[in-house]
C-alpha cells in the first residue's frame, strides 16, 4: 500500500517541503550516498511503501525514481537531479549552491533532512503536489510557444543598421553575462571555500598542530615511495568513493602539502607528482551520476562503477610515476 510522504527541511536546511506521491511505476527511493543505502532512504521507503535502492550498485531508470537521497556537500550532485526534474533530498545542510545552483528550487530540493523531518502527507498537499507536476508541463508548453515566436521573429528581414546594432548588443550582452556568471561562481563557490581553508590553516599554523603535521606528512609526501603509497590508499575501491565528495579532502590535503612546500619541508620539485598523488580518488564518488549524465544504460552503470574503481588502483600510482618523470627540470 503506497502512502504519500511529506519531507521537510531540517534546522539548517533549505528548500522543500517536498510531497512524495508514490505510484506503481514510480516508487523507488534511490540512495546516492556512498557506503550503502542511507538510513533516511530506508525510512522514507518504509513510510511510503516504496523501495530503497543503492544508486551506486544498481542503476535505476529515471521514470521509476520517486526521489533521490544524496549527501552532497554543495558542488555537483545537489544540482544534477533537480536539473533532471527529480525530487532531491540532501542529508547535509546545503542550500542553493554549486555549478547547477540555478536548477535547485524549493519545489525540487530539500536539505538537512533527518528522520524526524518526515511525515505522512494530508490530502491537500497531495493535491498541491499533483497540481505542480501539471504546472511543469504547462511551463514547458509556454516555453515551446515562446521559442516558436522567437523563430518567427528571426525569420523577418531587417536592414543592415538594425542588424549591426543587434549583433553588437548581443556580443556586449555575452560579455556581461560572462562577468555575472564569474562573480556568481566566486561568491557561491570560491569565497566560501577560501573562508573554510583560511580558518583551518589559521588554526593549524597558530596552534602548533602544524609542527605535528609537518613531522608526519612531510616524510611521506616528500618521497616518491611515500607518494605512491598515498595514491594507492586514495585509490582503494572501498575508500575512494568516501574520499571523493566535492574534492574537499583533496583540497584540504593539497593546501596542507602546499604549506609544507612553502616551509621547505617538502622539496618544491615534488609539487607536480603530489598533485596527482592526492587526487587518485577524483570523481570516484560520482561515477553513477556522471554516467547517467552521459545517458548510459543501467547495465553500463552497474559494471562501469567497479571498472572505474579498479582501474584507479593501477592508474593512481601510475599517474604519480608519470608526473614524477615529467617534473624533471621543473624548478
Amino acid at each position: 500500500m503506497y502512502k504519500p510522504v511529506i519531507v521537510r527541511r531540517g534546522s539548517g536546511g533549505w528548500g522543500g517541503p517536498l510531497t512524495l506521491v508514490p505510484t506503481e511505476e514510480k516508487h523507488k527511493i534511490v540512495s546516492i550516498t556512498g557506503g550503502g543505502i542511507h538510513p533516511l532512504a530506508v525510512k522514507i521507503a518504509d513510510m511510503c511503501g516504496g523501495e530503497a535502492v543503492d544508486g551506486f550498485s544498481h542503476a535505476i531508470p529515471e521514470s521509476e525514481i520517486l526521489a533521490v537521497v544524496i549527501d552532497c556537500g554543495g558542488t555537483a550532485r545537489c544540482g544534477v537531479y533537480p536539473r533532471k526534474n527529480i525530487l532531491t533530498i540532501n542529508v547535509l545542510p546545503v542550500g542553493k549552491s554549486g555549478a547547477l545552483a540555478r536548477f535547485m528550487t524549493p519545489e525540487l530540493y530539500v536539505s538537512d533532512v533527518k528522520e524526524t523531518n518526515l511525515d505522512y502527507a494530508d490530502e491537500s498537499s497531495v493535491q498541491a503536489a499533483l497540481l505542480r507536476t501539471e504546472d511543469v508541463d504547462a511551463v514547458h508548453k509556454r516555453e515551446d510557444l515562446k521559442r516558436k515566436i522567437d523563430a518567427a521573429r528571426a525569420g523577418q528581414k531587417r536592414n543592415i543598421i538594425t542588424r549591426i546594432g543587434i549583433s553588437i548588443g548581443q556580443i556586449v550582452n555575452k560579455f556581461y553575462a560572462a562577468g555575472r556568471e564569474t562573480i556568481d561562481v566566486v561568491i557561491k563557490n570560491i569565497l566560501p571555500f577560501m573562508a573554510f581553508v583560511s580558518m583551518i590553516l589559521g588554526i593549524i599554523n597558530a596552534s602548533g598542530i602544524g609542527t605535528v603535521i609537518a613531522n608526519t606528512i612531510s616524510p611521506v609526501a616528500g618521497t616518491l615511495p611515500g607518494m605512491l603509497v598515498i595514491s594507492f590508499i586514495c585509490a582503494i575501491p572501498f575508500i575512494s568513493p568516501i574520499l571523493g565528495p566535492g574534492a574537499v579532502i583533496a583540497q584540504v590535503v593539497g593546501t596542507l602539502v602546499g604549506a609544507q612546500i612553502a616551509l621547505g619541508n617538502i622539496p618544491v620539485q615534488y609539487a607536480l607528482p603530489a598533485l596527482f598523488a592526492i587526487d587518485a580518488q577524483v570523481g570516484a564518488d560520482f561515477v553513477p551520476v556522471g554516467l547517467s549524465l552521459g545517458e548510459a544504460d543501467p547495465d553500463t552503470i552497474e559494471l562501469g562503477v567497479p571498472a572505474v574503481l579498479y582501474s584507479r588502483v593501477i592508474t593512481g600510482p601510475l599517474s604519480v610515476l608519470i608526473a614524477y618523470a615529467a617534473s624533471i627540470g621543473l624548478y
Binding site: N189, V197, V252, T255, G258, L275
Partner: peptide, 14 residues
Amino acid sequence: GSELFVYMGIAAGV
C-alpha cells in the same frame, strides 16, 4: 571553480 584548491593549495606553496 568550486574545486580550485587541489591545484591552488599546492601552487600557493610553490
